[in-house]
């Protein structure tokens, strides 16, 4: 185990409407086996010992699955390791003497709550608009009644792996939420169970997304930032689903209008 000394440049902001600034905080004696967030825990413990406010940042499961953690680290969403959420990033990826710049996600739809914490409720709005299959409790048919080809189930699972962290929006030069939205649209639209609401779903979700976020110009930055490496192929799929939602005769296809 190795120890390194780093310097943090951390964004501090008191509240949603306050002006923010970078604080420079030295972080000596960091063990390289620490996770990035354990490093921040330690820095916070030291701040409290000095009588200062701890840095506010979102985090929870620390297993890369809940999607609560965020952080723009050195200009990259979730930091330099590909396919890795901040909580799974380890200090061995940094070198002694590094200055590490930490900023919150920035997007109009993700207002800053405090310091590094942002409000991602806009994602919930998109799901509330249509990111579901209407199947009220009770009355579901036997789970094996509709065979689903393995390739389809696998593709749906690839899309469903999204953890809703918002890195796609944060990384996107346009603050677009296409990858998040398309992942859910694709997950549900690929499955036979999702067919009844297929067009209504994509229309409602895209419309809500567009009220809140920027538009996609196919940079591909979101896929690189995604801790689950979700493919932008799903964005293409959503685009074609959206076009169909506008042009197909839904009644004749028995798909919800």
């Amino acid at each position: 185990m190795k120890e390194i000394n780093v310097t943090l440049k951390v964004w501090r902001q008191d509240g949603p409407n306050a002006a923010g600034h970078f604080d420079t905080i030295p972080a000596p004696g960091i063990k390289d086996e620490m996770s990035f967030l354990e490093m921040l825990d330690l820095v916070n413990e030291r701040l409290i010992a000095d009588g200062k406010d701890a840095i506010v940042f979102d985090h929870d499961c620390r297993e890369g699955i809940c999607g609560t953690c965020s952080l723009m680290i050195d200009g990259q969403a979730h930091g330099p390791q590909k396919g890795t959420a901040t909580c799974q990033l380890h200090m061995r990826k940094f070198a002694d003497g590094d200055e590490i710049v930490i900023e919150p996600w920035r997007a109009t739809a993700f207002p800053i709550v405090k310091d590094l914490m942002v409000d991602r409720a806009a994602f919930d709005r998109i799901i509330e608009a249509g990111g579901f299959i209407t199947a009220e409790t009770g009355g579901a048919p036997d789970a094996n009644i509709t065979p689903i080809p393995k390739t389809v189930a696998d593709a749906a699972m690839d899309a469903a792996a999204c953890i809703g962290c918002g890195a796609c929006v944060a990384a996107c030069p346009n603050s677009a939420a296409q990858l998040f939205t398309s992942a859910k649209v694709s997950h549900l639209n690929l499955l036979p169970q999702g067919q009844a609401e297929r067009y209504k779903r994509v229309e409602a979700m895209v419309d809500t997304m567009e009220e809140l976020f920027g538009s996609c110009t196919n940079h591909g930055e979101c896929e690189e930032a995604c801790p689950k490496s979700i493919s932008i192929d799903f964005i293409a799929l959503m685009n074609s689903e959206y076009l169909k939602s506008k042009f197909k005769n839904r009644k004749r296809l028995s798909q919800h209008d």
Binding site: V101, T108, P173
Partner: peptide
Amino acid sequence: LTRINHAARTVKYQSKRDYIAANWASR
């Protein structure tokens, strides 16, 4: 679309971005 995109991030990143996929042409 440019107007929409500007409105979608009114406060820019205050530190340098490090792009991975977005290239000079796309930006």
